[in-house]
Design a protein around this nucleic acid. Sequence first.
DNA 1: GTTTTGAAGATTGTATAAAATATAAAAAGA
DNA 2: TCTTTTTATATTTTATACAATCTTCAAAAC
Lengths: 227, 227
Amino acid sequence: MAYKTRARFVADDIRHRILNGEFPGGTQLRQDALAADYDVSRIPVREALLTLEAEGLVEFYPHRGAFTTELSVAKIRELFDLRVLLEGHLLRQAIPRMTEAALHKAEHILQEYDAALDSGSQIDNWSDYNFAFHEALYHPADLPEAMNLVSQLNTKSDRYIRMQLLYTQAIEKAEREHHDLLELSRQGEVDAACQLLERHILEACEGIVAVLEGRVQASQTPDTAQL
Amino acid sequence: MAYKTRARFVADDIRHRILNGEFPGGTQLRQDALAADYDVSRIPVREALLTLEAEGLVEFYPHRGAFTTELSVAKIRELFDLRVLLEGHLLRQAIPRMTEAALHKAEHILQEYDAALDSGSQIDNWSDYNFAFHEALYHPADLPEAMNLVSQLNTKSDRYIRMQLLYTQAIEKAEREHHDLLELSRQGEVDAACQLLERHILEACEGIVAVLEGRVQASQTPDTAQL
DNA sequence: GTTTTGAAGATTGTATAAAATATAAAAAGA
DNA sequence: TCTTTTTATATTTTATACAATCTTCAAAAC
């Protein structure tokens, strides 16, 4: 796992730029421009774009190139509904199997969170932290395929989560809920924990939708479509 | 959608060969050999393999190449559990929104099934038919992301489903259940339909596991590992 | 006898360059 | 003037060639 091929490096960086909003939905990603950016040939760039296509961040049109995907409100709602379903399944399986070590690990991640929060907002790393916590929580379930699907759903919705964080103070709320979630898990309160998780996810979803619809209303004048 | 790039063509064909069992789990897929096979350069082959990696049929190891993935019994069980979860969700959303047209379409697919069954086993097309029926059933739910996940789970488990069909008479059983499923959906019996769906999926899973464990017992002598 | 080292061979990963295709603009015809 | 065809340009897609990495196997050291 030490070695990182150029294609993988480029993929990681382009993903980062997409999630940060540098490439909004619908922008074309020109292969030679990116190749020049990273000072590599177009082939690793192409492979990177294919990887991102698999993740749902990018879509290829034959002989026309790669474009970043656009998510509608309906699709965001669907993604978060699926998260509720899958993460609920994972948490339900995980709680009875949680060891002390697993609980400590999740708690450790939470504390790092808190520390990072005190020293500035750090939106950039927030997504990774967030996913790390959820992953730690679900890890005892030992369901790698389900985790994989959850991870996919996360990458698809990540950029909108970031957008929400820019406009609202959702981090503190999420952070409090994470603490509660861990506490309920520790006590083995499966149903209560799953209910909280469901609220946790769905309220985040509504926050994003609110921002999105607000944004649409605010900037309905220019730069609507690029394709 | 008419045009098919070479990379896509190669990907479709290699997928077919993997699912048919020509490349069992763990075999290395050499790029130049495949390139010679299809009379193209290695680059479209490489892109095809990357696509298949995204689908979970193949795994890349840096500077070592691509290998077909191996599924354990535990992983198969996990995949089918996820199918129960997601397809149940889909069916539950779909039934209340089913129009006459949607029901007819599903029924039409079923009848084609039956016709194909009478004129010979046709295992090769069975997977496509099977997925087409389930898709038609879930289509009224209008949840493309969920369908996408279900499709992923299907491609991953497909080759083992085919294997099961070779050894057992599961097609007829599945066909009967499909008819019942459609009937319950038509009558709006949401809970009963979902319960039947769950049984339908889980029993198929157990059938596969039985074959797998039987096969392992039968051929424990030669050609165990290639890597 | 076991382990380690190193060179040869094979295979993947990347760069450069040519071919194929789509988009856009210009010219010809109605 | 509008439509259709042609041509030109830009971009993607594929082929060829080269570089980097891994595997293998034999020889040497312990």
